[in-house]
Design a binder for these strands. Structure first.
Lengths: 217, 217
DNA sequence: ATTATTTTTTAGGTTAGTCTAAATTTAATA
DNA sequence: TATTAAATTTAGACTAACCTAAAAAATAAT
């Protein structure tokens, strides 16, 4: 069984590996965990002994099948709790993350299944990210980042990549919530900024912002 | 700020001291925490440095005013979560304790206040124990243990002292839930067992059981 | 009141997770 | 290709929370 800290490392590795598709380097993991490379080396040795990652010295780590299941279980809990906080307790979109980081480590399958039921078996969390089911399966949603959309095209916001609180507040202000339709009404090729339309309102956003918004078409 | 372990020690001390009214000895605390006396000595030194308990070598510990506030804050969280688990997620009475032991350590005042509101500001938890308010005040309920009731007298169950799962299951089976009225229909003085009536049903219980049931008259 | 027993504390050691500083390996550059 | 730079690992040390075994203090018993 994984400790709280091990769970956090594994989750970070899973995310950095983009769902287990690429390997993760020591330094990027250290950065993500706000810790030092030496500490990361210690930890990945432990995780590798527990067979949730595979590790080749100097060449980074990869998530194993077991590790992927474990990571998705933590992610499932995180996203169900976020949904609970927003839907039932009236948290705003940008307040949930920190608390969900703690709640995701509560150990009880019974609890999480009951919570799932209480929430009506939601498919996505308040950020629009898909919630894995009890067996670790995710309903795949083909999605692209907004900056890839051409002028005139539209999509529905499904998620926001970055969980930076300032970005979330900004998006909230311009009405860019998951579920909302976005239309690209103009595009400047030289800096890749764009004008978008949400509801009836038109807003100008830079590529820094648009690349963090995910949409389905 | 207290660590998770420190919070657990403090809570145990608070309970063993019966709300801060008597001092707690090293060995009883070791017993309660399922640990060794030496470990307890280490910990009470730490807690005493943090001013949540006062400690005199060889003569046990006492909860300070600060410590009482801290302990009540943890107890508030525990009891609100237990209420949530039973009322909203449909946990049975005897399933809640273990999970609430984990949930009580989640750090967020915002969360616990919102939860309180969501539950409709309950005054007691599913075991009938009073829930402290945000300032650590408890609405005092004068209560006695059932074994002190004389034949012919009756009371309303408010709480169960022991949280032993087998006891809780047994009480559930005979219908002895908080809120239920109990009448003492017979009493054997030599072993202090008694016959009680819950609803229309009569049951025989030993002193071991009756001393764990708290009632208000 | 001296001895025996129980309780508590001290001393020294372990593991998890972290750190700094030094050593090693890989990658980049001249 | 030899050298420099960057990334990674090792070595050794720290704190929190635990342990066992031995020492010390308080309590009980003769």
């Amino acid at each position: 069984m994984l400790s709280l800290t091990e769970e956090n490392y594994l989750k970070a590795i899973y995310h950095l590996s983009e769902g287990g598709t690429k390997s993760v380097l020591t330094n990027e993991l250290a950065e993500a965990m706000s810790t030092k490379a030496a500490s990361v080396t210690d930890m990945i040795k432990k995780l590798s002994l527990k067979d949730v990652i595979s590790y080749e010295k100097y060449y980074g780590v990869n998530v194993t099948a077991t590790g992927k299941t474990e990571a998705l279980s933590v992610i499932r809990k995180h996203r169900l709790w976020e949904t609970f906080l927003v839907q039932k307790l009236g948290f705003t979109w940008d307040e949930v993350h920190e608390v969900a980081e703690q709640l995701e480590h509560i150990r009880s399958i019974h609890l999480i299944d009951k919570l799932d039921e209480f929430l009506g078996f939601p498919k996505v969390d308040p950020h629009g990210d898909p919630i894995p089911d009890g067996k670790g399966k995710i309903k795949a949603q083909p999605q692209v980042s907004l900056d890839q959309l051409k002028e005139g095209y539209q999509g529905t916001i499904t998620a926001v990549k970055d969980s930076d609180s300032n970005l979330l507040k900004y998006l909230d202000k311009i009405g860019a919530k998951p579920g909302k339709k976005i239309k690209v009404t103009g595009k400047e090729e030289y800096d890749e900024s764009m004008e978008i339309q949400i509801d009836e309102k038109k807003v100008f956003i830079s590529k820094d912002v648009s690349k963090n918004i995910l949409v389905t078409q």
